[in-house]
Design a protein around this nucleic acid. Structure first.
Ligand code: FES
Ligand code: FES
Lengths: 162, 162
DNA sequence: CTATTGCGGACATTTAGCATCCGGATTATA
DNA sequence: TATAATCCGGATGCTAAATGTCCGCAATAG
């Protein structure tokens, strides 16, 4: 039950993009640099985000990644889905259909109780992630950060966007 | 984000134990046989359940595993915790403390928004699993199974408990 | 004493995650 | 038009974890 590191990486990257003026983006290299992450691997993750429709890519000089939608319309679940896929963590291999006591006319149309319990738990998890938007996160992070921090970020951004 | 197969294996094994008369158990071999699972690996998982306090082990001839508590007091989360551990799936490596814009007096006592959002989602997931007991599952499974199936299980159990 | 059973460690195999690199395509800019 | 910046997808290697087996030891019932 471990989530890929890439989720933390890309969630923070998206939070940074969400703090930018709408339509403005950053190249993958800059997004990696901002959190001191491996640039090549970050690039891979950003490609996955683009395939998942969370960000848009702009190729060529001056290009980069920007949010594909307003930050209010992007949830943490969208990011998880793009990076990890939509497969449930609990994978049922229908072991109830195996063994010495399976009856030939066994009725397996009804879902397994265990399977559905885990399914519902996972839906609760997803629902919570869907309820948190990038805008929520970006505003909270900005509100909580010190003036020095904000200034440092502004300077860095001006250099990167120049 | 994948859960170990062992959770499905042991959850079904515990459901079987919950259907037995209180205090009665089965050896790991029988639990594996019932769902046609790899006996040696099932034994490993049952040891983990015992370490986690979900089942009790009885050594020696005629021994085996039985539930450590009434089935109403054992939840699916107890099983997940015993097999997978209590570590959250989302592991924050505090990447916000890295990069060119971190201020020396950065205040990282406040939790990261992203981190806490994932933490809350995971708590919702656990809460749902904690709300489902083995007794719930065992009664539902028994209720839904056909008379032939119940008869086959009874015969098999008599052979194993003899 | 012997057969049964759980316990823990060692070990091998397979799979998934982490990370890098490269060639090709696209585009702004000089 | 030439050049540099940038994304894209695939190939590749490395590491960690999950999967699965085996063995010797300890406990216990008969
Ligand atoms: S058969 Fe897969 S969870 Fe029950
Ligand atoms: S620093 Fe780890 S989730 Fe924000």
């Amino acid at each position: 039950m471990k989530m890929t590191e890439g989720v933390e990486w890309t969630a923070h990257a998206c939070a940074l993009l969400a703090a930018l003026p709408p339509g403005i983006g950053l190249p993958a290299n800059a997004l990696a640099e901002f959190h001191a992450l491996a640039p090549a691997y970050m690039a891979k993750h950003m490609q996955a985000l683009a395939r998942g429709g969370v960000v848009e890519s702009v190729r060529g000089a001056g290009g980069g990644y920007r949010l594909a939608r307003p930050a209010t319309d992007i949830s943490l679940w969208d990011i998880v889905e793009a990076i990890e896929g939509a497969e449930p963590a609990f994978r049922c291999s229908e072991i109830r259909q195996q063994g010495p006591c399976v009856t030939p006319n066994g009725d397996f149309r009804k879902p397994c109780e265990i399977h559905s319990a885990f399914g519902k738990a996972e839906m609760a998890w997803r629902a919570h992630l869907k309820s948190v938007s990038l805008a929520d996160i970006a505003t909270e992070v900005t509100r909580k950060s010190s003036p020095q921090k904000r200034a440092a970020v502004t300077v860095w951004l001006q250099e990167k966007l120049a």
